[in-house]
């Protein structure tokens, strides 16, 4: 049992390490996600001429639109890299539980998304003159990103098998990610507007439940999704 766990973790982190090393060299995925995110918040900044109160009302929505779209770019690219040179077959041929591939890719995707968020948050704070560095808000961003990546990695593995993968992923992902996006927007808005913690807790619970459910579903079904 311990040996199985060790093999599981070794393979999972081998994938994470490989993804980070490849991305460090190419910076393809990270740069496209970051540039896209910065452009979105810049466009919103000029499009919405807002006073301080209105600004705090739209902040949560603008933030999560940015994270969701940038995340989709990253999810698509991350799995396409595996498919284009046949590397997904290379991973599937390894004598490890195939859920290691899911967890490895999901952790890498989460790291890329969090790095982009770490850069976007201070830029957003400056542009919109809003303090986003609140522990509660950061927790919501982490939970929301985990949920988004959990379902997104599963669906990107499905979409990458098709010829219309770039179009298919958002079509599959956004309807399924609606609960996590609504909960994240509501919880983020609650923290930004200084709502009672008891009001926000419901949304945080929803985020936690969503994360657990989708990680469990992906663990169970990833093998069937990637096999012909």
């Amino acid at each position: 049992m311990i040996l199985q766990w060790r093999n599981f973790l070794r393979a999972t982190f081998a994938i994470v390490r490989k993804d980070l090393a490849a991305e460090w060299r190419s910076r393809e995925l990270f740069s496209s996600m970051l540039v896209f995110s910065l452009l979105v918040i810049l466009i919103f900044n000029f499009a919405l001429e807002l006073d301080a109160e209105a600004r705090s009302n739209v902040t949560a929505g603008v933030l999560w639109v940015t994270f969701a779209f940038a995340g989709t770019l990253g999810l698509n690219r991350s799995m396409a890299v595996e498919k284009d040179r046949g590397c997904l077959d290379g991973l599937l041929l390894a004598p490890v539980d195939r859920s290691t591939i899911y967890f490895g890719k999901a952790i890498s995707n989460l790291i890329f998304m969090l790095v982009v968020e770490v850069i976007v948050l201070p830029v957003y704070s400056v542009l919109y003159n809003t303090n986003l560095f609140q522990p509660g808000l950061l927790l919501v961003i982490l939970l929301g990103s985990i949920g988004y990546v959990a379902v997104g990695t599963l669906l990107s593995a499905m979409a990458v098998q098709t010829r219309t993968r770039d179009v298919l992923l958002p079509i599959l992902l956004f309807p399924l990610a609606v609960p996590v996006l609504i909960a994240a927007v509501k919880a983020s808005g609650g923290f930004l507007q200084g709502a009672e913690f008891s009001e926000i807790l419901t949304w945080i619970n929803l985020l936690v439940v969503y994360d657990v459910i989708f990680i469990a579903i992906s663990f169970m079904f990833f093998d069937y999704i990637v096999e012909e």
């Binding site: 090393a21 490849a22 060299r25 040179r85 046949g86 590397c87 041929l93």
Partner: peptide
Amino acid sequence: VVSHMPLLYGDL
């Protein structure tokens, strides 16, 4: 397994 695809990562 060796296929006509190299199954290798170009950036490594």
